[in-house]
Simulated assay, not measured.
Amino acid sequence: MDETRKKFRICLICVVAAAVLTGMIYYFAECNAAERETEGTLVDRRWEAESGIEQ
């Protein structure tokens, strides 16, 4: 019985740690994406919208 509880506890800790790690990776990736908002397609589309030029 104690062996089963120990395995369950270890498995639960691993799942929680993986969830926390995934959340941190997602959070920091989104922070970097917000900084890159001035690059690429988004800027082109904003410029087109403001200038009235369409492709």
Score class of each variant (00 low, 15 high):
Met1Arg: 11
Met1Lys: 08
Asp2Tyr: 05
Asp2Phe: 04
Glu3Thr: 12
Glu3Gly: 01
Thr4His: 06
Lys6Tyr: 09
Lys6Phe: 07
Lys6Glu: 15
Lys6Val: 09
Lys7Asn: 14
Lys7Ala: 05
Lys7Met: 07
Lys7Gly: 01
Lys7Trp: 06
Phe8Pro: 00
Phe8Gly: 02
Arg9Pro: 00
Arg9Gly: 00
Ile10Cys: 00
Ile10Glu: 15
Ile10Arg: 13
Cys11Lys: 13
Cys11Met: 08
Leu12Gly: 01
Leu12Trp: 11
Cys14Tyr: 05
Val15Cys: 08
Val15His: 02
Val16Glu: 03
Val16His: 01
Val16Arg: 03
Ala17Arg: 02
Ala18Arg: 02
Ala18Met: 12
Ala19Asn: 11
Ala19Met: 13
Ala19Pro: 01
Ala19Phe: 13
Val20Tyr: 03
Leu21Asp: 01
Leu21Trp: 13
Thr22Pro: 00
Thr22Met: 07
Gly23Thr: 04
Gly23Gln: 05
Gly23Ser: 06
Met24Arg: 03
Met24Ala: 05
Met24Glu: 10
Met24Phe: 11
Ile25Asp: 09
Ile25Gly: 03
Ile25Cys: 04
Tyr26Ala: 04
Phe28Thr: 07
Ala29Leu: 08
Cys31Asp: 11
Cys31Phe: 06
Asn32Val: 06
Glu35Leu: 07
Arg36Thr: 10
Arg36Glu: 14
Arg36Tyr: 10
Glu37Lys: 08
Glu37Met: 05
Glu37Leu: 02
Glu37Arg: 09
Thr38Ile: 06
Thr38Arg: 09
Thr38Leu: 01
Thr38Lys: 10
Glu39Pro: 01
Glu39Cys: 02
Val43Lys: 13
Val43Ser: 04
Asp44Ser: 05
Asp44Asn: 05
Asp44Val: 07
Asp44Tyr: 03
Arg45Lys: 14
Arg46Ala: 04
Trp47Thr: 14
Glu48Gly: 01
Glu48Cys: 04
Glu48Met: 11
Glu48Asn: 13
Glu48Tyr: 10
Glu48Pro: 00
Ala49Gln: 15
Ala49Leu: 08
Glu50Ala: 04
Ser51Lys: 15
Ser51Asp: 06
Gly52Leu: 02
Gly52Asp: 09
Ile53Cys: 00
Ile53Ala: 00
Glu54Phe: 05
Gln55Asp: 12
Gln55Arg: 14
